[in-house]
Design a protein around this nucleic acid. Structure first.
Length: 662
RNA sequence: GGCGGUGUAGCUCAGCUGGUUAGAGCGAGGGAUUCAUAACCCCUAGGUCAUGGGUUCGAGUCCCGUCGCCGCUACCA
């Protein structure tokens, strides 16, 4: 049975940035760790290419979609190469092997009744690749949440019976505590399921790009339904009899925005419908948020979506430290793995990277190596014998235990912290044993003991760091006279304290982590391909978290603002509950000659009967909006009492219907 | 509106099922040292543990209210 780890397949219309990179790095480090343990490890990443906007972008660029995705997919290949992410497969949804599986899934579910034909009328956002309901869209045809434009579509579409799987899914989540990581997301998913799952439209009109629905070439499979299946495609299901060696996946890793709806709900439901086992872990991490480097402008000035590319960051590190580019690249790997959090967003700042780099890589790791290798009392040949220091040995094993425990939940931050703790122990050990003093005193045996144990501690730590920093940790090993190449299954042997061979020859080398000079220069952000392109990308979203409150110096408005709002007196001529809604009433009102319909959420405060005949105040020039499918042409004014009940505002005396209020 | 989370030293964060003087790292200050990348080692940081009540012999850690922030979700007009 394989250990099968996946990243999302990334959307091909944005350049990989440090957010996307983090997901891939988590997978890469984890895969390297498992390989080192000797597990049969399979690491998949790839690109998601069947989106309508991909097709649109290609046409805009005067290319065929396939040529376009070929090109852009390559930028991901290059980014992962740059970061030395060693995936086993790079899957592309435009591959035939994937299309075949998608069709197979479609047909099976159609046969089982989990997919049925229906009519969809509503909004679709190409930018988000998502269907929206009326309440998600404002009056200008803009999705409230994402700011994307929508188009009205009415077409026959296939639906997936997602609603049928809520209970089973909930049961699975409750009985498998490690299924969804972290807990905060798990809670969200449970809440999401408990409020009731709706069937989801999974086909669209065929615009010439995508996987055709079997038996109906006028449609293509909805991109998300298509994309998620890639994880299964890789296993060879259903034709390859050995598919169950790869499936179920051990872990799907991703950023938080595609966790709840897709990977923790839709995908498991699809698998349940297919009668296939669910992945062991679904892991979501938070986003990197970027703000101006000096922080002088405070939280409100977080830059808009300017999340840098890995290449740009590394370039700056090299400039600022003179480090080997591969070391600088590993320093970025280290920082991203060390500081990303799962339950929350994390601030991305070069000053923080610098802090980690100088403190943990330079001062602790790099320096502790040098203070022995370059010491006058050390000649470059390891002692031929030395007793293990029990205290340091215990420290090493403790770090290893903490490391392993953390990685059981993909928590690289904690794992790397444990390694750093070990390095601190080695530094302390050297301060205590002071081999330079023993050397002066002519105490050769004590010198040997100190040298051996200290270097062994460094070696031990370097092995644990190998998955996070393949080059830099390898360089540490090389300077210790060891091979940086670790064979599969070597983990236990290499993390035995005392594995450093006696009598070896160390290698002279440059300072591995030269200190970063102050101040850190700023980094140019990744070019932004399109607005709000990140929604279904499976990548970390560039951040624009500027809060409205932070921008507004106050909530005051001018008289000019106020004048824009027209209030009128209206007579309620009819009122009734809206079926299926708890709080909504549909009111018919008379404004002079004009009749209007208003939807209001006051059913818990007023009965329809008592409303009829009342005179109320309404906002007259509010753009109509649909609530629960019913158009509301205005809004009524009401106060809220201490119980949260609505108290309607009424004129003190009856006035003529439609009268203006000033 | 509902649900979930969160508010702990200048900064970033730990603090499980309540129990001696509230912790770590970074930064800052002091000391020591000189093997090393002005690194390392030691000491110090006196933070009303957001706030107001409550339960308890005892609460950062449980309960209720309030304020701020974040996330999810909605029938927010």
């Amino acid at each position: 049975m394989r250990t099968y780890i996946t990243t999302p397949i990334y959307y091909v219309n944005a350049v990989p940035h440090v957010g996307t990179a983090t997901t891939t790095l988590l997978a890469d480090a984890q895969a390297r760790y498992h390989r080192m343990q000797g597990l049969d490890t399979w690491f998949l990443t790839g690109t998601d290419e069947h989106a309508q906007k991909v097709s649109d972008a290609a046409i805009a660029a005067g290319e065929t979609p396939q040529a376009f995705v070929d090109k852009v997919s390559q930028s991901f290949v290059e980014a992962w190469k740059f970061l030395d992410c060693r995936y086993d497969t790079f899957i592309r949804t435009s591959e035939d092997r994937h299309k075949d599986v998608v069709r197979e899934v479609f047909q099976r579910l159609e046969k089982s009744g989990d997919i049925y034909l229906g009519v969809y009328e509503g909004w679709y956002s190409v930018a988000d690749e998502t269907f929206f309901r009326d309440t998600d869209v404002d009056d200008n045809g803009i999705v409230k949440e994402t700011g994307a434009k929508v188009e009205r579509i009415r077409e026959d579409v296939h639906y997936f019976r997602l609603s049928a799987y809520g209970e089973r899914l909930k049961e699975h989540i409750l009985t498998n505590p490690g299924f969804l990581i972290p807990d905060t997301r798990r809670n969200e998913v449970l809440a999401f399921i408990e409020q009731g799952l709706r069937d989801i439209a999974i086909s669209r009109k065929n615009a010439g790009w995508g996987i055709e629905v079997p038996g109906d070439s006028s449609k293509v499979v909805y991109v998300w339904f298509d994309a998620l299946i890639n994880y299964l495609t890789e296993s060879g299901w259903p034709k390859n009899p050995a598919w169950n060696q790869t499936w179920p996946a051990t872990a799907h890793l991703m950023a938080k925005e595609i966790f709840t709806r897709f990977h923790a709900t839709l995908w498991p439901a699809m698998l349940m419908a297919l009668d296939l086992p669910l992945p062991k872990h679904v892991v979501g991490h938070g986003w990197w948020v970027v703000r101006d480097e000096e922080g002088l402008l405070g939280k409100a000035s977080k830059s808009k979506g300017n999340i840098p590319t890995p290449q740009a960051v590394v370039e700056k590190l090299v400039d600022a430290s003179g480090a080997n580019p591969l070391v600088a690249r590993d320093a970025l790997r280290y920082y991203l793995l060390r500081d990303i959090r799962f339950s929350d967003d994390t601030e991305f700042a070069l000053s923080m990277l610098q802090s980690r780099y100088n403190a943990e890589l330079g001062n602790d790791l790099g320096n502790v190596l040098n203070r022995v290798l370059k010491a006058g009392y050390f000649g470059g040949t390891l002692p031929t014998e030395a007793a293990l220091d029990a205290g340091l040995q215990a420290d090493a094993l403790k770090a290893k235990d903490a490391y392993i425990a953390a990685l059981a939940t993909y928590d690289w931050g904690t794992a790397l912290q444990a390694v750093n703790g070990l390095l601190a122990c080695v530094n302390r050990y050297l301060a205590t044993t002071a081999p330079w003093k023993a050397a002066k005193a002519g105490n050769a045996a004590d010198v040997d003991t100190a040298i051996y144990n200290a270097l062994e501690g460094v070696r031990f730590a370097a092995v644990l760091l190998l998955p996070a920093m393949p080059h830099a940790a390898g360089e540490v090993l090389r300077q210790l006279g060891l091979s940086p190449d670790v064979a599969s299954g070597d983990f236990d042997r290499l993390t035995t304290f005392g594995a450093l061979p006696f009598g070896g020859q160390t290698a002279v080398g440059d300072v591995i982590f030269p200190r970063l000079a102050f101040p850190v220069p700023t980094v140019e952000a990744a070019p932004k391909a399109a607005k709000s392109e990140q929604k279904s990308s499976g990548e970390t979203k560039p951040v624009d978290q500027t809060s409205p409150a932070a921008d507004a110096t106050s909530s005051e408005i001018t008289i000019d603002d106020f004048i824009k709002v027209q209030f009128r007196i209206a007579d309620i001529t009819h009122a009734e509950k809206i079926e299926g809604a708890k709080k909504l009433l549909r009111l018919e009102v008379q404004l002079g000659e004009e009749k209007r319909q208003i939807v209001s959420g006051i059913a818990d405060s007023y009965t329809p009967e008592e409303l009829i005949g009342m005179q109320i105040v309404v906002v007259y020039n509010l753009k109509p909006a649909k609530l629960r499918g019913v158009e509301s042409q205005g809004m009524l004014l009401a106060a809220t009492d201490e119980d949260g009940k609505a108290i309607l505002l009424q004129p003190a005396k009856r006035v003529v219907s439609g009268a203006e209020v000033r």
